[in-house]
Write a protein that binds this DNA or RNA. Structure first.
Length: 430
RNA sequence: UCCUCAGUAGCUCAAUUGGCAGAGCAUCCGGCUGUUAACCGGAGGGUUGUAGGUUCGAGUCCUACCUGGGGAGCCA
């Protein structure tokens, strides 16, 4: 019999086929047994009638526990009573392995228990849907950039110095030399874009901050495009189109998964260009009206981000933050050097910052000055300064946190569910 | 790191003023030809996070520690 996947089952009505998968749930009605089987592409109800199968096959269904692996052969037919509208009449069944008593039952569980069993939790419908949407989002990112002539250039994971200075890094011993896990590929992207014009990197990044919130992971993935000759306006446009294309892709390609997650897709359908663009000071006008505790001049807190984003039905771009609170490499605004040519994009529904970007300093002397001011080790940044000596051009880029985008699009409240095996403060098992 | 809440069966949770350790699910046994987290009957399953203290008596009160959840700061 041909092995088919459940997602294609509609093409096999009234035909006999073979399915390979795992037992998702079982209902026993005496001489009639319902086996819910999943195979990674979907779930289907199969029925085993005692009179239709051999005594051995019927007896085998006795022993089947949740998550047992099996191969079933039978005829597919339409049946309104079955979940999904199709059902298999089982003729033969081969048990590959009878599962031990499965810890994750269809009933409720606590977060701690589920995280301890993350390797098994991945099989549940919600987690399965999130994994599939994450994969689609990453594919959408790569397609978007590849289609626009970007070249993927992988940046190093092990780095000799901090990219942005003071944030806490994971250190490691590199043959008796001090090294760190990267916190961004950006500086290397700047070198790459002077070769290929438009580049991006996609990889894991690491922050050793002892952060413990729904928006934080110690290890997370970032997409970082960098474009030579681009200014702040250019990358705001790019980031906006990028986000729109991701949302569109998930809406069209992952409809079923969004349904499993019970995501309100009307909130995603409004994600269209143009996004509102407000300056840092305009954002603070809103915050002060809403009575924020945060003083103007400092960075937003988590609740501030929620207040700002809740004013809009689509992502909001906040640009031109004070230079004093931003990274050393950001280009000051020609009209007011107190402000940096940078932007953050805040996702709606309180999901907070999903993108941060800026125009980079391309003047050698200014960059050199900034490195001094920030007390950064000059030797480590010599190669980075070199980029400003050999055909320096204005250039800009941004970084997008994949997990936060997945959380937003899926409508889930904690980034720990957006990656298969999250690394969190006090938790790195399994 | 700080604030806050919690830890009782494999899981989710009860246990009155300090007075016999309980239920549902899961597991095992039995029943049922249309179940959707099926249902009905039965069985097994406990160092109440750890260590100390108060008390005739502690799951319950006190102290310390451990583990985890939620939040803050910081960040994408």
């Amino acid at each position: 019999m041909p092995h088919v996947y459940i997602q294609d089952i509609a093409e096999h009505v009234e035909k006999e086929v073979t399915l390979k998968g795992w037992l998702y749930n079982k209902t026993d009605k005496g001489k009639l047994r319902f086996l819910l089987i999943r195979d990674g592409t979907g779930v289907i109800q199969t029925v085993v009638f005692q009179k239709n199968v051999s005594p051995e096959v019927f007896q085998a269904t006795d022993t089947l526990a949740q998550e047992s692996s099996l191969v079933v052969t039978g005829t597919i037919r339409k049946d309104e009573r079955a979940l999904g509208g199709f059902e298999m009449d089982v003729r033969n069944l081969e048990v590959i392995q009878v599962a031990d008593s499965y810890p994750i039952s269809p009933k409720e569980h606590g977060t701690s228990f589920l995280m301890d069993n993350r390797h098994l939790w991945l099989r549940s419908a919600r987690q399965h849907s999130i994994l599939r949407i994450r994969s689609e989002i990453i594919k959408a990112c790569r397609d978007f950039l590849d289609d626009r002539g970007f070249t993927l250039v992988d940046t190093p994971i092990i780095t000799p110095a901090a990219c942005e200075g003071t944030t806490t890094l994971f250190g490691l011993d590199y043959f008796e030399e001090k090294a760190y896990l990267t916190q961004s590929g950006q500086l290397y992207n700047e070198a790459a874009c002077m070769s290929v014009g438009k580049t991006y990197c996609f990889g894991p990044t690491f922050r050793a901050e002892k952060s413990k919130t729904r928006r934080h992971l110690m290890e997370f993935w970032m997409i970082e495009p960098e474009v030579a000759f681009a200014d702040l306006d250019d990358i705001m446009d790019l980031a906006q189109e990028h986000l729109c294309s991701i949302v569109q892709r998930v809406l069209t390609e992952r409809t079923e998964e969004l349904k499993v997650l019970e995501r309100d897709t009307t909130l995603l359908e409004t994600i269209q260009s143009p996004f509102p663009r407000i300056s840092y000071h305009e954002a603070f006008d809103i915050l002060e009206k809403e009575g924020t505790q945060t003083p103007r001049g400092s960075d937003f807190g988590g609740t501030d981000e929620t207040i700002i984003s809740s004013q809009f039905d689509r992502p909001v771009i906040v640009h031109r933050f004070p230079t004093a609170i931003k990274a050393f490499y950001m280009q000051p605004d020609g009209e007011n050097p107190e402000l940096a040519l940078c932007m953050d994009i805040l996702a709606p529904e309180g999901y907070g910052e999903i993108i941060g970007g800026s125009q980079r300093i391309h003047d050698y002397d200014l960059l050199s000055e900034r490195i001094e001011e920030h007390h950064l080790p000059r030797e480590a940044f010599q190669w980075y300064l070199d980029l400003r000596k050999y055909g320096s051009v204005p250039h800009s880029g941004f970084g997008m946190g994949v997990e936060r985008v997945v959380a937003w699009i899926c409508g889930i409240d904690h980034v720990r569910e957006t990656i298969a095996f999250p690394r969190m403060l006090y938790r790195m098992y399994p």
